[in-house]
Write a protein that binds this DNA or RNA. Structure first.
Ligand SMILES: [Zn+2]
Ligand SMILES: [Zn+2]
Ligand SMILES: [Zn+2]
Ligand SMILES: [Zn+2]
Lengths: 138, 138
DNA sequence: CCTTGAACCTCTAGTCGCTAGAGACATTAT
DNA sequence: ATAATGTCTCTAGCGACTAGAGGTTCAAGG
């Protein structure tokens, strides 16, 4: 049986975050001591590790809820799980595409001024003021 | 003189967002009609376009505040502006690096299961439960 | 056994950048 | 003059936490 602090140390999830996961229903409420403190077992540890891992991979709380629900029913089809993962992948890819476009524009912008001049002539500021200078729509 | 709705149409910034920018000090409060409605001039339009453009490029409100401050003082050194842009660029790059790592793991995970099986044997769920299967730290 | 100090409890509010809604007032077009 | 649309302020909500206040419990040392 682990206290919340020990669980936190083992999973690297902060204590308030663990409590937060409980309030939003990601973690089921664990046993309590006489003095009302949470005590977790190995299952709780595993579940939190799962959550942590999924969060690290960018899954939303809602997605993780569904995944856990599925995990609790080993006989169900896993279609939903693969769907969620595929959606997450395409989400990540969309973000990458957007960020790469931003990177390009920002590179052009930062290259345009060495910071030695005066605000009035600054290419950074002019570029921001005038989207026409941009090579891409964003 | 534009009403807030017309400004919104021209800049593609939603009306409540314009008001929000005013409350947080990004936009200076414009003139009002007798009936207390906002009326913007060309300068207001330009300023909002600048903000919109910078937001599209991912700059934070705080960063944009500094940029605008600089823009209002054409004689100052633009060092701060280039610093902010450079910071934004490296921020974007860091995000891209992270997302690419995620993309790799997610690709591996999604490839591991076609969704035809049962939750118990699902590679998606097992991978999430066990970070050891991952190729990279995240 | 008792005291100390760390860890724990709940609750509220703040973060960021908006977005949505309620209920009232202003403007514009017919 | 009336109706439709636009605008006003204010409050609350989103996601996923994070921070702090003020109080209680636990575990270890004396
Ligand atoms: Zn410059
Ligand atoms: Zn642009
Ligand atoms: Zn599967
Ligand atoms: Zn992993």
């Amino acid at each position: 049986m682990f206290s919340i602090g020990e669980l936190s140390r083992r999973t690297k999830v902060k204590v308030p975050t663990i409590r937060y996961y409980e309030t939003v229903g990601l973690l089921t409420a664990p046993e309590r001591t006489e003095g009302n403190q949470r005590r977790y077992d190995r299952a709780g540890l595993q579940r939190l590790s799962f959550i942590r891992h999924a969060r690290d991979l960018g899954f939303s709380i809602e997605a993780i809820s569904s995944l856990i629900e599925l995990q609790d029913h080993p006989d169900r089809s896993c279609q939903a799980a693969t769907d969620i993962a595929a959606a997450q992948l395409s989400d990540v890819r969309a973000k990458i595409r957007r960020l790469r476009a931003l990177e390009k524009e920002l590179l052009r912008i930062t290259k345009g001024c060495d910071g030695e001049g005066v605000s009035e002539d600054c290419y950074v500021l002019t570029s921001l003021a005038d989207h026409e200078l941009c090579e891409w729509e964003h």
